[in-house]
């Protein structure tokens, strides 16, 4: 729970002005989406030869080059868009954190070899 910035430790911080939590909410959601994208791309690349070929940006690295580049690009793009949406919102990020943790869990599942290798074509 956020404390009143006019009293207690906030007063000791000397003129600290509290900020809206919106940008944090946006960043938390973006990480969940980025991790989910990595898991999804990993599983799709295993399941479909065309996707694997598409993700092969650089032969010495193979499809890992595309999976990671796309996941990072999706994370950054999502972060920028969500930041613009949430930047002034005085949200509490509880619900978004829960959503993000579920997305991260799916991302972990999608990158778990026993799971994604089950989709091998």
């Amino acid at each position: 729970m956020a404390m009143n910035p006019d009293t207690g430790p906030a007063a000791e911080l000397g003129g600290y002005i509290d900020k809206p939590e919106g940008p944090i909410t946006a960043a938390i959601l973006a990480v969940g989406i980025g991790c989910f994208a990595l898991g999804l791309l990993t599983t799709l690349a295993e399941a479909n030869e065309g996707v694997k070929e598409f993700l092969n940006f650089y032969d010495p690295v193979g499809p890992l080059s595309g999976k990671t580049t796309w996941a990072v690009a999706i994370w950054l793009l999502t972060w920028i868009v969500l930041h613009l949406v949430y930047r002034r919102k005085k949200t509490e990020s509880r619900k978004e954190l829960a959503v993000s943790l579920v997305l991260i869990a799916f991302g972990l599942l999608g990158t778990f070899p026993i799971f994604f290798q089950a989709f091998a074509g």
Binding site: M1, P5, P9, L13, Y16, V31
Partner: peptide, 25 residues
């Protein structure tokens, strides 16, 4: 590859709130 995303998020939160993070348990 999930680690840098999460670590960047943590650094962002710390820089965004700075000393004010102490007010947000």
């Amino acid at each position: 590859w999930m680690s840098p995303l999460l670590a960047t998020l943590v650094a962002f939160i710390v820089f965004y709130y700075g000393a004010g993070l102490v007010l947000h348990d």
